[in-house]
Design a protein around this nucleic acid. Structure first.
Lengths: 347, 347
DNA sequence: CCAAGGGGTGGAAACGTTTCGCAGAACGTA
DNA sequence: TACGTTCTGCGAAACGTTTCCACCCCTTGG
């Protein structure tokens, strides 16, 4: 605590302090800070004074006064920051934002519309320049309010009923349909489906893809083999146990979300059936290729999704006023073994 | 675009608009917003007016003027938001922050001190109330500058040379030493070590633990079996391949970071040695238990780390002025199989 | 009935910055 | 030399809020 500047004592140096020390007007200091043309001599004096005073620009004050009122901050509303999908999305958006000198304010909803509302409220109160949201889907008024208040919104991963909102999703139905087709070709006729909470748009889409896929190959949809409304690995594990205990057990499983895939696989290994019952999951898993057999998945390109969302948002920030745009990215099937297990003869 | 409020046209309603519509003074509106006592009748009128005008408090202006100048925002500097460790930490800190009505501004450094510096600069320019940082460790002047400017800093996962900074770390040495002891008990004498970039504090600590562990059991440290400065799974995979191609190949591997563990395991499976060569990794992996054999790890409690860091920070925000505190959390060994493989007789 | 006290309200000042309008200097031309 | 034009720097105003302070009115005690 010797010659330090502001451990707790003196208040932080302001633009005015810099101006007086440099012997110039505050407007000049502002110009120097913002890189606007100024006589080299003065600029030099200002820089030195700022240096000596340990001056740090206050961006909150700056964006308050600025003509465009930009805060250079984006709000990111995730399902759960700890989930690999959210984490990858976070990183992709962060990189895109960094290119424009923007920072990310992030929060998790845990699929709770109340938390979603809270996050949207404080994000807009902090005057973020734009919002990228994985919507819980149970209430779109807040999204709409934000947009109407002038904050552009892009929804990611899920469509929303909110009007005028750009979205980035993947082609869930096509992905699942293709998976079902493959399973059928491998001889499977009794396929089960594990689905996430029904409030989640992707859960419904993927289920729809499952239904369509079965219809396309002329297979029956056994209601007893459909387990929806599952959330988290444990729920999926329990559901899988039950499915496999049925007299007419499924020979193949389709899982509609990454944690559910993990849960399903845990149940399979518990019953030592991982080599006999086929499994295809939606969304890739970090070490899926190291398992024996590897878990085949319908993969989505997280960074492409994040990048695309950011681009749509930046477009709006740059003044684009057209109608809502909906980008749909393709999925990719990754054959790793578990989806290539043929249907056993004797089942 | 019919009766909407501010699609792009009218500027957002301010406290003054609310005041005139409600027929009260702006001070009263401010009081209502901040929940300070006010005559019920007036409060009612204000609330109604705010509702009708779609008024949203501007927190940037608010924190500018506020006596405590708090922005209710924390800055979180991570290595890589997409990494499971960072993601878990992010979530833990977010939850702790949410309890105090604070939000997180997060960014990734990718171990680049330049990016770290940039993040610290904009975070402090945005006047975050505090910083939680996983420091690259190559430069502490920015951390120190932030602290001196009055922003409390807590370093996580790694110690830092910056003075007066609280830290939360785990007991890396003890964790690795115990792992080495176990391997020794299983008969291993030739153990290899895979380490991350040497600029990373934890990488050095874990290596130190490895050295100490070997010494404790009276084992020789073979320099040819030590591979440090590896970053990412691929580097570890390549290094592991090379190690196993040695004439005197190791019978056990100790990996000092989660991605390195993945890379090592990939190499082992490629060579079909996952059942013959032991592997213990530092930091848990999502599906490590599903592999065959499961990957034994020295696990750290991510949420405890995040929570502890947040608590230390909040303490500072609440006025704690004491000297730097250093919390060291324990690790836990999770035996899953790969660490329990005995040394083969014939190697 | 009056004076003192107190709670509640409103207008103005202030937070640190950017932007506006203006003044003064510098420069070129008549 | 005088004048018009351009340019650069300066102080003041403004952004939306909180806080200070003065004021008013009502209550209460003498």
């Amino acid at each position: 605590m010797s010659s330090e500047q502001n451990d707790t004592g003196r208040r932080a140096a302001t633009i005015r302090d810099v101006a007086t020390m440099a012997g110039v007007g505050i407007a000049t200091v502002s110009r120097v800070i913002n890189g606007k043309p100024v006589t080299p001599d003065l600029a030099e004096r200002v820089t030195r004074a700022a240096e000596r005073l340990g001056y740090r620009q206050d961006l909150t004050a700056s964006s308050l006064r600025r003509a465009d009122r930009r805060t250079h901050t984006l709000g990111l509303v995730l399902e759960d920051a700890a989930n690999p999908f959210s984490a990858a999305l976070h990183r992709a958006v962060e990189d895109a934002a960094a290119e424009r000198g923007m920072l990310l304010l992030a929060g998790s909803t845990d699929e709770d519309p109340v938390r979603e509302r809270g996050l949207l409220k404080t994000f807009t109160a902090r005057r973020v320049d734009g919002l990228i949201v994985v919507p819980t889907g149970q209430n779109y008024t807040d999204l709409d309010a934000a947009r109407r208040a002038g904050t552009p919104v892009v929804c990611v991963d899920r469509r929303t009923t909110a009007p005028q909102v750009d979205t980035v999703t993947v082609d869930n139905r096509v992905g699942v349909r293709a998976a079902v087709k493959r399973l059928h070709e491998a001889g499977h006729r009794r396929m089960a489906f594990l689905g996430d909470l029904r409030s989640i748009w992707t859960a419904e889409e993927r289920y729809a893809g499952f239904v369509e896929g079965l219809a396309a190959v002329g297979c029956v949809l056994h209601p007893s083999l459909v387990r929806r409304g599952l959330h988290g690995a444990e729920a999926a594990q329990e559901a899988t146990r039950e499915l496999l205990a049925l007299t007419h057990a499924p020979t193949a499983l389709v899982s509609g979300q990454n944690l559910l895939t993990v849960g399903a696989r845990m149940a399979l290994q518990e019953l030592r059936l991982q080599h006999r019952v086929a499994l295809i999951g939606f969304d890739d898993l970090p070490m899926a290729g190291l398992l024996e057999p590897g878990i085949s998945v319908i993969a989505q390109d997280h960074s492409a999704i994040g990048r695309e969302a950011a681009d749509l948002l930046f477009d709006r920030l740059d003044g684009e006023r057209g109608p809502a745009r909906h980008r749909v990215l393709p999925t990719r099937y990754l054959a790793r073994g578990s989806g290539e297990i043929p249907a056993a003869q004797d089942r």
